[in-house]
Amino acid sequence: LRNTEAAREAGARIVALVNVEASPLAQLADVVLPLGAGPERSVAATKSYLASLSALLQLTAVWRRADSGDGALADALPALPDAM
């Protein structure tokens, strides 16, 4: 959280990908993207880590299509759940 607080104080816009929307990180964020991975039951943060990677991949696909018109990554997203 200290890094997030330092970034905020330096003027950064904070975007948080969180599994628990009431988390301290979410409270600091300007934008909260809930992952909805559900509670961790065995290995800590495995589901939220994979959900974060998936969310970042989806954001990258949208940005790539908007920036360059290349939709190959976005077109491949429906296969992501089976690949994971």
Rank of each mutant, 00 (worst) to 15 (best):
L1K: 15
R2M: 09
R2E: 13
T4F: 06
A6H: 03
A7D: 05
R8I: 01
R8G: 02
E9T: 11
G11N: 01
R13E: 07
I14P: 05
V15A: 06
A16C: 08
V18F: 13
N19P: 04
N19Q: 04
N19K: 00
V20T: 13
V20K: 15
E21T: 15
E21P: 13
A22D: 12
P24R: 06
L25W: 07
A26S: 06
A26M: 09
A26K: 01
L28K: 12
L28Y: 03
V31H: 13
V32M: 10
L33W: 10
L33F: 09
L35D: 07
G36W: 04
G36I: 04
A37K: 04
G38E: 05
P39W: 13
P39N: 14
E40G: 13
R41W: 15
S42H: 15
V43M: 04
A44R: 04
A45K: 00
K47Y: 00
S48M: 12
S48Y: 00
Y49Q: 10
L50G: 10
L50A: 12
L50M: 12
A51W: 01
S54W: 00
S54P: 02
A55H: 01
A55F: 04
L56F: 09
Q58W: 05
Q58A: 15
L59S: 08
V62A: 12
V62L: 14
W63V: 02
W63P: 00
R64A: 08
R64N: 10
D67R: 10
D67A: 12
S68K: 15
G69D: 15
G71T: 12
A72W: 10
D75F: 00
D75N: 07
A76G: 05
A76L: 09
A76E: 09
L77P: 11
L77S: 11
P78N: 05
A79K: 09
P81I: 00
D82C: 02
A83W: 14
A83Q: 08
M84D: 07
